[in-house]
């Protein structure tokens, strides 16, 4: 599986009729099994880029290719995880996770079995019959991860998935996400505005500038990874990436 972002631009019309350049000429080749963080200050169009990749929005110019084929709409090959979890509150946890399989017409017994497997993977085995509102934010996001994985997508797109969580939960979730990633070998595109998060998670960090969002630099995170949070090279890397973001903000 190969994911290519090919010279994608996006212009919006605001309510006042102004034209806003959200993205300009973004190109990116994503390798299979890679963990990429898309990093930038708010308003840099990183979420827009992810939504275009997911097929939820159309680019003004350019295209997104999966194995050479252009993405022209949402597809189960590209799973998406939203910041607000977006779980269905009227469905039990297990039925939330099996939802994608249900849509695909998988039989109930089979889809429940698969859902249970992913529920175990995210460590919520005993919460199958709970409703989402009975869970904490971190648990809800784990359910959302399981739901996205259950349909076995080639790429998992994550839009600031831990943005609404407190710091401790967020750290724990980052570690768990890396464990899950190592087990499932999915390609991950992860949008965040947190430099720490990007340095901790990514193989490569794509730093965007603001308005119009352009790729400022793609930073390789040196092996071995996943690293810890306190090593010297991490601190250097963090400082470097922070510098890039400041450049991107000023040098418009």
């Amino acid at each position: 599986m190969k994911l290519q972002v090919d010279n994608v631009s996006k212009r919006f019309l605001t309510d006042t009729g102004e034209e806003v350049d959200a993205l300009r000429g973004v190109s990116l080749d994503v390798r299979e099994g890679e963990f990429i963080c898309i990093l930038g200050p708010s308003g840099c169009g990183k979420t827009t880029l992810l939504r275009i990749i997911a097929g939820l929005e159309q680019p003004t110019e350019g295209q997104v290719l999966v194995d050479g084929e252009p993405v022209d709409g949402p597809t189960p090959r590209l799973g998406m995880i939203f910041q607000d979890y977006s779980l269905y509150p009227w469905r039990r946890v297990i039925d939330n996770i099996s939802f994608g399989l249900e849509l695909a017409g998988v039989e109930k017994a089979a889809r429940t079995a698969t859902a249970r497997k992913y529920l175990e993977l995210v460590g919520l085995g005993e919460f199958a019959d709970a409703f989402p509102y009975e869970l904490s934010g971190g648990m809800r996001q784990r359910v959302a991860v399981a739901r996205a994985l259950a349909t076995d997508p080639a790429v998992v797109l994550m839009d600031e998935p831990f943005g609404a969580l407190d710091a401790q939960t967020r750290n724990a979730m980052q570690r768990e996400l890396l464990e899950i990633w190592e087990k499932t070998k999915k390609t991950v595109l992860f949008v965040t505005h947190s430099v720490d998060e990007a340095v901790f998670l990514a193989d490569r960090i794509v730093v965007l500038t603001t308005r119009p969002g352009r790729i400022h630099e793609v930073v390789d995170v040196p092996e071995p990874r996943p690293g810890n949070r306190t090593c010297m090279s991490c601190a250097d890397l963090r400082r470097y990436v922070l510098g890039l973001i400041d450049d991107g903000r000023q040098g418009q």
Partner: peptide, 29 residues
């Protein structure tokens, strides 16, 4: 009905009919 409920269903491969029957109707019920 929350936009991301619909979008999540779309990324999971829902058809328009499935979105109506399994997301919009229960969400609006």
């Amino acid at each position: 009905v929350k936009r991301t409920w619909i979008e999540a269903a779309m990324t999971l491969g829902a058809t328009e009919r499935q979105i109506l029957a399994k997301v919009i109707l229960p969400g609006a019920l």
